[in-house]
Write a protein that binds this DNA or RNA. Structure first.
Lengths: 210, 210
DNA sequence: TAGTGGTCTAGACCACTTC
DNA sequence: AAGTGGTCTAGACCACTAA
C-alpha cells in the first residue's frame, strides 16, 4: 500500500487505525488486517452520568425513612439476591416528597443484602441515596443497574400513606443495584401514584466507536 | 518531554493521544495541551441496536390495526408534532397480541404526522412496525426516540377491547419518533394492562471514550 | 519569533504466523 | 524464510498562536 499510494508506512498505519476505530477492519498481529464491515455500526444509545440520573427525581425531593424491619426472604426476594429462602433481609420503607411543597411523590421500599445490614446506622443521617451511602461505607461500586417498570394498584396502607384514594393506579419502578462481581447489593421498589411521576427516556442514534 | 524521558516525539505523541482518547487532556493546535481531568469520566450506558429493542416486545407478537381515523389535533397532540391546533392528524389504533396464544398484550394508538398520511396505504400489508414502513416509504430516518412511561386506569372501551375488568391499572408507554431535523414523525401510545408487560432496562457503568 | 500540535518520510527491530 | 502488525527513532515541514 505504501508503494501503491506513494506514502510512508506511517500514513497507511494512521489510516488503518481510523478504520479500526470505526470498527470497519480488525488488525491482528502476524495475521493481517481483515475487513469486518462496510458501514460503521450504529445503535440507539442512552447515557446517564450518575446513578442519580436513573433515579429521575428532580433534586428537590427527599426520602423520609419511616420503617426499618428485618424480614425472612420469600421466594422472589431470595431470588433477587441469590440467597436461600428464609435468609434475613433488612427492609427500609419511606415516603419521598418534594421538599418545598411537601407533595407526596412515591412510596419506596429498599431491600439491603444481609452483609450490609450495618448500613442502618448510617442511613438517614444525610439525605443522600441509600446506594450511595452503601458504596461509601462498604467500599463497593455499583456496576450495573437494572430497572423494571410496571403498573400496579395501590391498596390500603400504601394509599393512606400517599394520601390517595384506594385503588389508584401506580407506576412501580424496581431498581436492582449490582456490584462488579454480580452480587445484588440493593433492591428498591418505588410506587408512584398515577399523575405524580412520568418516567422519561431518550435514545439517540449514534455511531459506535472502538 | 522527549529529552526528559529519552524517547522520540512519536512516542510522546502516542502517549498523549491515549490521554486524549481517555478524555484526560485536550490538545489544541498552536496552543498546547491542557489537563482536563485526573480521572477518566464514566457513565451508565444503555444501548439498543435497533428501534425494535425499544419496543421491547418478544418477536412473537403482532399488531392488528382495527381503527383508522383522521382527527383534529387538540392542544397536547398539536404540541407533540409542533403543529397548529386543529391540524388534521391520522390515528391508527389496534390490539397487539401474542401470535401463538392470542393473549392480548396492549392497545396501541399511533399518530402520524400529516405529511405522511399516505402511509395508510402501506400499513397492515406486512407486520413490520409502522415507523419502519414510514422510514422506508418516505426515506426518513429515526434519529431520536423519546419514551415516557406512566401509570393509568383503563376505562370502558379500552378495557373491553383488552378483555379486562373496568378500572384495571395499566402501564402507558408513549414513544415519540423524531427525524434528524427534529420533526416528530410518529407518536405511539401503548397501554399494557397490569401484569401483562414489564418494561426492562439495564445500565452498565462504563468509561466514556473520545 | 519562538513554540505548539499536526502531518509525514525513511528506516529500524520485534514477536508472531504461515508456508 | 517471508510476511504481518506493533513499536520506536530521527528528522522534516506546516499553520497557527502568543509574547
Amino acid at each position: 500500500m505504501c508503494e501503491r499510494f506513494s506514502v510512508s508506512r506511517f500514513t497507511i498505519r494512521n489510516a488503518m487505525a481510523e478504520l479500526e476505530a470505526a470498527g470497519l477492519v480488525e488488525r491482528r498481529k502476524a495475521i493481517g488486517t481483515i475487513v469486518k464491515a462496510l458501514e460503521p455500526e450504529t445503535a440507539y444509545v442512552q447515557t446517564f452520568q450518575t446513578v442519580e440520573g436513573l433515579l429521575q427525581y428532580a433534586a428537590g425531593t427527599a426520602l423520609d425513612i419511616s420503617e426499618m424491619i428485618e424480614l425472612q426472604a420469600g421466594a422472589e426476594l431470595a431470588g433477587w439476591f441469590d440467597l436461600e429462602e428464609g435468609a434475613r433481609i433488612v427492609r427500609l420503607g419511606g415516603l419521598r416528597s418534594e421538599t418545598e411543597t411537601g407533595r407526596k411523590f412515591c412510596w419506596t421500599e429498599i431491600y439491603i443484602r444481609p452483609e450490609f445490614s450495618g448500613l442502618l446506622e448510617h442511613v438517614g443521617l444525610d439525605d443522600r441515596p441509600v446506594h450511595k451511602t452503601l458504596e461509601e461505607v462498604f467500599d463497593e461500586k455499583v456496576q450495573k443497574v437494572e430497572l423494571e417498570l410496571s403498573a400496579c394498584m395501590l391498596s390500603g396502607k400504601r394509599a393512606e400513606q400517599l394520601e390517595i384514594e384506594e385503588g389508584t393506579a401506580a407506576l412501580r419502578v424496581v431498581r436492582q443495584y449490582s456490584a462488579t462481581d454480580g452480587r445484588v447489593l440493593e433492591v428498591s421498589v418505588s410506587d408512584h401514584p398515577e399523575d405524580r411521576h412520568t418516567f422519561r427516556l431518550e435514545f439517540s442514534y449514534e455511531t459506535l466507536v472502538s
